[in-house]
């Protein structure tokens, strides 16, 4: 069994408190096959991985060549996204999964479940302030 472990990162809140939040450093492969590293919030509540339109451009994808899909959250209204199949590297694992690129500029980068949480068991360890991606043994 392989386990890839990432530390939580500290962030200051509006009232000055420090919160540690779960992040993972994930590499996304561009159209030119080069890898681009981004820290993502590890978000078990997100159906799909989310980035921004400008990140789509950075990776070399044509935004609107993706599948139009609307994304909702607990606070905001709907966000227009275009979903592409993108190759990711998490730990030493390379795999392709759906990634939604939002037209809205200020969305956080989220690592969502589609194509990720079915591959790894994801364990949030708030006490140790780490997130573990556990890759079960194959059959």
């Amino acid at each position: 069994m392989k386990v890839f472990t990432f530390p939580y990162l500290p962030q200051r809140t509006r009232s000055g408190l420090i919160y540690f939040r779960p992040f993972a450093l994930v590499y996304l492969q561009g159209v030119d096959r080069r890898w681009h590293p981004f820290p993502f919030y590890v978000d078990a509540g997100a159906d799909v991985t989310l980035l921004r339109e400008v990140d789509c451009q950075l990776l070399g994808y044509e935004l609107k060549a993706g599948k139009l899909q609307w994304m909702g959250g607990v606070c905001a209204g709907l966000i227009c996204t275009f979903v592409h199949q993108v190759t990711l590297r998490l730990g030493t694992e390379v795999f392709t999964c759906p990634v939604a690129f939002a037209e809205k500029a200020d969305v956080p980068r989220l690592l969502g479940r589609a194509g990720v949480f079915n591959r790894f068991q994801v364990c949030y360890d708030d006490a140790q302030r780490v997130t573990r991606f556990i890759l079960p043994e194959g059959p």
């Binding site: 069994m1 386990v3 890839f4 472990t5 990162l9 992040f23 993972a24 450093l25 820290p39 730990g91």
Partner: peptide
């Protein structure tokens, strides 16, 4: 179990 720690 092989655990690899990745820093951010």
């Amino acid at each position: 179990r092989e655990e690899i720690f990745f820093d951010i």
